[in-house]
């Protein structure tokens, strides 16, 4: 397969996987009664795409997942929240993967998840225009760290395993 086709196919495959995970997770009941808290396993796919393919491809995977995810799984009104969160998390990932090695992808993921939750909270603040919602900041930071470490480890192990198969570089 030519290289370009291979990259495109892999990117599309990852976008589909991210969307599937996102849709599945949306069907699960909320783990804790705190708005904005969720596992966010689809972010592991974005992170994986960034390490295995590149920033551009990861951006494509994220964009497809956020737009189609709002259409298929979540209600369209949550698009703004996930778009703001996704954008900030993507920016954090881009900056951090450049300085933190892949051995500590879990740390990149934790900080990206915190950035995601911060973006979500800011979007929420813009929408409801009630500063009281900022009280959720501390707990969203905590949940971002915990879920981020978990999803980061998922991406990290997946990268290690798939590199051995030669499917990705």
């Amino acid at each position: 397969m030519p290289k370009g086709t291979r990259r495109l196919t892999l990117t599309a495959l990852l976008a589909a996987a991210a969307l599937g995970i996102f849709a599945l997770e949306a069907q699960l009941p909320a783990p804790v009664p705190i708005p904005g808290v969720k596992l966010g396993l689809a972010n592991a796919v974005t992170l994986f795409a960034m390490r295995a393919l590149g920033r551009k491809e990861a951006g494509a995977v994220l964009t497809v997942r956020v737009l189609l995810g709002a259409l298929f799984a979540a209600s369209p009104s949550t698009l703004l929240y996930s778009a703001c969160g996704g954008l900030l998390a993507y920016a954090a990932m881009c900056l951090l993967t450049a300085v933190i090695p892949e051995k500590r992808l879990w740390a990149v993921s934790a900080l990206a998840a915190v950035a995601h939750n911060a973006g979500q909270l800011l979007a929420c603040l813009l929408v409801v225009r009630t500063p009281g919602v900022l009280a959720y900041g501390p707990i969203l930071a905590v949940s971002g760290i915990i879920t981020g470490v978990f999803t980061g480890l998922c991406a990290q192990y997946l990268l290690q395993r798939l590199r051995k198969t030669g499917l990705i570089k």
């Binding site: 949306a26 009664p33 708005p35 904005g36 979540a74 929420c124 959720y136």
Partner: peptide, 22 residues
Amino acid sequence: PDKICVSQGRLTGGGIPIVCMP
């Protein structure tokens, strides 16, 4: 869809608000 606001339960004091984001 998520009904998080319902599961947040009863609010008796200030500080943390009940939020229904959608």
